[in-house]
Write a protein that binds this DNA or RNA. Structure first.
Lengths: 207, 207
DNA sequence: CTTTTTACCGACTAGATGGTTGGTAGTTTT
DNA sequence: AAAACTACCAACCATCTAGTCGGTAAAAAG
């Protein structure tokens, strides 16, 4: 609560614009000057508020990306309904924002992971943390599904979580340039096919 | 056949080293000088053989990447055995080379796609072409599987191909930094689960 | 043997980039 | 009202990068 309103407002503006440009052009292809030009601010302002470009980026991850991943990918699957339905809807919504070219934070995450993978361990640490949070929450969702009788007890929860994240990361990559809407539809259909293989066949449906 | 042996040998050396470095550090994070230092060659040599860095990269894609994608991801699924088994083995092998940190060309491809996606249309054209070839061949493999009675006739071949490529791209991203061997195993198990949902249940097995 | 071509050298240029620094207008504190 | 601090400016620096260019040794062609 120590930081003045003005300070926080400026930092927020910088981070929002920074994320937009980093996402659109990549971290290494976006210069600090690009961001400042967009905001009509100067170099001095930037280095007054942030230590370095890298520090700036890490703060963006922690302030913007983490929270959005929570609200878009984690909270939606925490209910007590059928886990597979929850995940289906969650993916459906996330991919739908992607179709409309909005910031889909699941992809923001995997996009940056791709850019820094094996290249910048410092930043990867933060990105892997978020990924881990997503993974852990998917695992417990699947376990809950098994406990509640929606999912076959023999499925490997960790495996399912990994497979889901993999396919999500992949489809988002493929949706960037070519036929996003059609690909989303095809993807969702196959996801449902996959889920059929995980269902508990003895479960008494209430439909 | 006009080009001299010396010329071709040097160009080949440059391309092999170039691909290695581009793959390891990314295209934009690898300078022409980096490649030349590795080969103890000079700027003059580089621009004598290639028009530009971009031209150089495109030649790498067409000479090295395309061929490897064919031999690693397309030819292995062209047999007449059970399509789902062929794909399973193909993915298994591709991911195994990945575990040993060798150049896995499926990932080389998706790695570059990630780097240029929405940023360099000229290069993306070439990358999307290769992706398309892979996709088309997966589609016909699935169709063959339906025709031969291994795969349920109601499955959407294009959807399956897309889902397979998505999950492959995704798992390769996730295998770069964390527990590649364990993740490969988990992934393959889930892939088999998915394939169970595609199998033709009326097919008379010969096992 | 002379001329031309091939394959390569390495100094140089122009532009970009991350980061530094001395300065200053406006606000807050004393 | 003086002192101190906040938020920002803009010129500057060192470094890196793609690409250029004049030159040259060795091989091939004439």
């Amino acid at each position: 609560m120590e930081k003045s309103l003005k300070r926080m407002a400026t930092m927020q503006r910088m981070q929002v614009t920074g994320l937009e440009l980093f996402y659109k052009n990549g971290y290494y292809n976006t210069s600090v000057d690009d961001i400042l030009k967009e905001l009509s601010l100067s170099k001095g302002a930037f280095y007054y508020h942030f230590e370095s470009k890298e520090d700036f980026f890490i703060q963006i991850i922690q302030n913007l990306v983490v929270r959005k991943v929570y609200s878009m990918l984690i909270e939606p699957i925490e209910g007590h309904e059928n886990t597979l339905d929850l995940i289906t809807n969650c993916f459906e919504n996330a991919l739908e924002t992607a179709v409309h070219n909005e910031l889909d934070y699941g992809f923001v995450l995997s996009n940056f992971i791709n850019e820094f993978n094996g290249k910048n361990p410092e930043i990867m640490k933060y990105l892997n943390d978020i990924l881990k949070i997503w993974e852990v929450n998917l695992v417990s969702a699947v376990q809950k599904g098994k406990f509640n009788g929606y999912i076959d007890r023999h499925v490997d929860s960790e495996g399912v979580a990994l497979y889901l994240i993999s396919s999500f990361i992949g489809i988002r990559t493929l949706m960037v340039e070519t036929a996003p809407s059609a690909r989303k539809y095809r993807f969702m259909t196959q996801l449902r096919q996959y889920f059929k293989a995980l269902e508990n066949k003895e479960h008494i449906s209430h439909n």
